[in-house]
Design a protein around this nucleic acid. Structure first.
Length: 490
RNA sequence: CGGGGUGUAGCGCAGUCCGGUUAGCGUACCUGGUUUGGGACCAGGUGGUCGUAGGUUCGAAUCCUACCACCCCGACCA
């Protein structure tokens, strides 16, 4: 058991960290808070990118690229925006190094100070809206529907691999519209895209809703989000979509001439998901034996392990297996035939389980003679011996089944850990046990902050699907019309 | 950024308190042989700026100072 990882119940965060290292997803770098995403982890991210990018294109968006550096002055143009980000910005002040005169190494050349400092983007609203000003003159230029795949930097005090890193990868959509209604519809449309991606691709059920004013994006009029529950009962914000109103249009003077020949400010949205989704994927499904990946995002969907004593046996097995490999690839299934003789079958079984490969086939001489093959599924750790004939169809059906099954399991977990709570004592008691708490809230920031202060729980969102239900605030006793989701969050 | 902990071979660790042969163990890796249906076995080997930089000392992994990174708790955080 050379590569065993700690159990979830023993130490959840150590389990998370070790799993990421052992499954070869990523590692910490020499730079504080920054990570190296390793090939196996990056290929999962690439699959996420591909699926999301397709969905963005289907909804009419185009990709573009804006600069990494933002002039300092841009950041101050939208008041609440700068307030939200100022404390965590990396700043470029010089553009040249030189050798120290005492030979001690390289130093920043004091003569190469920048006239105006550059901010490494924490998000790109400012640089993009300053560009949109030049691109938009008429209602005919709208809507402007743009996405960019990029890295951003936020100088976080406390980092956690994938969940909160100083530099992370993401996509950020930035759109401009002629009307408020259109921008609002876009905000909701992209949130729904994220929810569909989380549920159908990642197998992670999410709650859709709006943030409270306290938790809103700096510069937005409404922030919608999807919230997922991790296996320790904590919430993870998995994606956000912001209705920006005319805030950035006004800050960067982006106006257009409407059909009636009148100048109007445009309406904006922005929306993003990041490599944090990798953290969500890991924490939602994986177990004490390692990663559990949904087939739609698994870099290797099927691994085939031959069990042989000598070259002749391997040749025989290969002759039967290789056509299957070819057929699987033709059917769009990513498959690895691991005929390496560097490790024994037992080692390979454990290794591919650690890496979360959804389906494993094993074939030895016993199967070869019986015309059978052993098929195992990662999520349930079950295996059975089945006829080799028809295995292709069986694999495809099993991949579909696993995709559904891990979603259903995560959904059942969330349902079992979501509680309606009506008294403050009950609230304090339940929050210690974890999970989502559905409770009434009086709608004030004061109450929200007081609850956070006392319990570390935040309002994750005001869910769209909450039913109207008259009640009283769990903290203040004031009247409330519907329940909101409280939880401790990452 | 405050409190606590850690940093020694690719990985996991001992040694540090109380300075003193050539810095050790497990695993991985290499070679040969035997093995192969759940992380094989035997034998022989390779691999170390002891986190970095200074200092104390005849002598530093060990003592002192500063810095860097990681982990846990807090503050901060869309």
């Amino acid at each position: 058991m050379a590569k065993a990882i700690p159990s979830r119940s023993e130490n959840y965060s150590e389990w998370y960290n070790e799993l990421i290292k052992k499954a070869d997803l990523a590692e910490n770098s020499a730079v504080r808070g920054c990570m190296v995403i390793k090939p196996y982890g990056y290929s999962i991210w690439e699959k996420m990118q591909r699926a999301l990018d397709d969905m963005f294109k289907e909804t009419g968006h185009s990709n573009a690229y804006f600069p990494l550096f933002i002039p300092k002055s841009y950041l101050s143009k939208e008041a609440s925006h700068v307030e939200g980000f100022a404390k965590e910005c990396a700043v470029v002040t010089h553009y040249r190094l030189k050798n120290a005169e005492d030979g001690s190494g390289v130093i920043v050349d004091p003569e190469a100070k920048l006239e105006e400092e550059l901010i490494v983007r924490p998000t790109s609203e400012t640089v993009i809206w300053s560009t949109y000003k030049n691109w938009i003159q008429s209602y005919r230029d709208l809507p402007l529907l743009i996405n960019q795949w990029a890295n951003v930097v936020r100088w976080e005090m406390r980092t956690r691999i994938f969940l909160r890193t100083a530099e992370f990868l993401w996509q950020e959509g930035h759109t401009a519209h002629a009307t408020k209604a259109e921008a609002e519809a876009e905000t909701r449309q992209m949130l729904d895209v994220y929810a569909r991606f989380a549920e159908e691709w990642m197998g992670v059920p999410v709650v859709r809703g709006s943030k409270t004013p306290n938790e809103r994006f700096a510069g937005a009029e409404d922030t919608m989000c999807i919230e997922a529950m991790m296996q320790d009962g904590k919430a993870l914000q998995a994606g956000t979509s912001h209705f920006l109103g005319q805030n950035f249009a006004k800050a960067f003077d982006v106006q257009f001439l409407n059909k009636a020949n009148q100048q109007e400010y445009v309406w904006g949205t922005s929306w993003g998901v990041s490599t944090r989704l990798m953290g969500a994927l890991i924490m939602a499904h994986s177990d004490d034996d390692g990663l559990v990946l949904p087939p739609k995002l698994a870099p290797i969907q099927v691994v085939i392990v031959p069990i042989y004593r000598n070259e002749e046996q391997l040749a025989q097995l290969s002759e039967r297996i290789l056509p299957l490999v070819k057929d699987l690839r033709k059917a769009g299934v990513s498959v690895k035939f691991d005929d390496s003789d560097t490790n024994k079958p037992g080692w390979k079984f454990a290794e591919y389980e650690l890496r979360g490969v959804p389906v494993r086939l094993a074939m030895g001489m016993r199967d070869f003679e019986n015309g059978t093959v052993e098929i195992a599924r990662r999520d349930l750790k079950t295996k059975e011996t089945v006829p080799f004939d028809g295995i292709l169809e069986r694999i495809q059906a099993l991949l579909d089944d696993i995709q559904q099954s891990i979603y259903q399991k995560a959904l059942a977990f969330r349902q079992a850990n979501t509680f309606k709570v009506d008294t403050w004592d009950e609230f304090k008691d339940q929050i210690e046990k974890g999970g989502f708490i559905m409770a009434h809230w009086d709608g004030t920031s004061e109450t929200e902050e007081a609850i956070k202060e006392e319990t570390k729980a935040t309002i994750r969102c005001i869910p769209f699907d909450a039913e109207d239900e008259a009640g009283t605030c769990v903290f203040s006793g004031q009247p409330s019309a519907r329940r909101v989701v409280f939880a401790r969050a990452y």
